[in-house]
């Protein structure tokens, strides 16, 4: 039995290209096309496709919102989200909406077909080509950025050293050390050493066990 597909995109050329790609594959049957959120909603209930190919942005609303409501109604529906936008924002939006796959529109049609196959097989396991990189970007700290010197000072503070010891260790004057420390406190939004180290730990600027508070 072939996998039924609904293609939702407001551009004729895109729908046409994707339809041909699916038809050539043999495993799929395109059961409908829609250009708007409203039409797509109607068709999803009417023809009950196994997989929906959905653009993130549609003329009358957001594809991500449509994906979210479709997912709520049918946990087994395969949802492949397409986007022209670059940036992780859309990817995480799709993940959040409960999509099964996310494909940028510069990818070849085969990628979309492969994503649809995945979506039909495991609709609730999210896949995207750039997923791990995007996760990495999201996990890395976007909080305060310390200069190399401030990092050194922070590390020494974490070891429990005082101002005099730090300045000796780094071969800088005590007043310069104090300036670095106060800048460090400012950046971490801390009022004292303990707060600064706690914040640094929380932000991942220090590793667990590194600090003696």
């Amino acid at each position: 039995m072939s996998i039924t597909v609904l293609i939702v995109d407001d551009h004729d050329l895109i729908r046409q290209g994707l339809r041909r790609a699916f038809e050539r594959d043999g495993e799929f049957e395109v059961v409908g096309e829609a250009a708007t959120v409203a039409d797509a909603q109607r068709l999803i209930t009417l023809v009950e496709p196994r997989v929906v190919i959905l653009d993130v942005r549609l003329p009358d609303g957001s594809g991500a919102d449509l994906a979210r409501s479709a997912r709520l109604e049918n946990p087994e529906l395969g949802i492949v989200m397409l986007t022209m936008y670059a940036g992780d924002e859309q990817l995480f939006e799709a993940l959040d909406a409960g999509a099964s796959a996310f494909v940028p529109k510069n990818a070849p049609a085969d990628d979309v077909v492969a994503a649809a196959r995945h979506a039909a097989a495991s609709p609730r396991a999210f896949t995207a080509s750039d997923l791990s990189e995007a996760m990495k970007r999201r996990m890395s700290p976007s909080g305060p950025q310390l200069s190399p010197r401030e990092r050194e000072v922070l590390d020494l503070l974490a070891e429990g050293l005082g101002v005099a010891q730090i300045s000796k260790q780094l071969y800088i004057s005590e007043s310069t050390t104090k300036t670095h420390i106060s800048k460090l406190y400012d950046k971490l939004g801390a009022g004292n050493r303990a707060q600064a180290l706690m914040t640094a730990l929380r932000l991942g600027l220090l590793k667990q066990g590194e600090a003696t508070i």
Partner: peptide, 18 residues
């Protein structure tokens, strides 16, 4: 750009794939 030329070019890409 998003709604116009970019989409048409992407659609053309799919047709070339075909």
């Amino acid at each position: 750009i998003h709604d116009g030329i970019a989409q048409e070019l992407a659609g053309l890409g799919f047709l070339v794939d075909e």
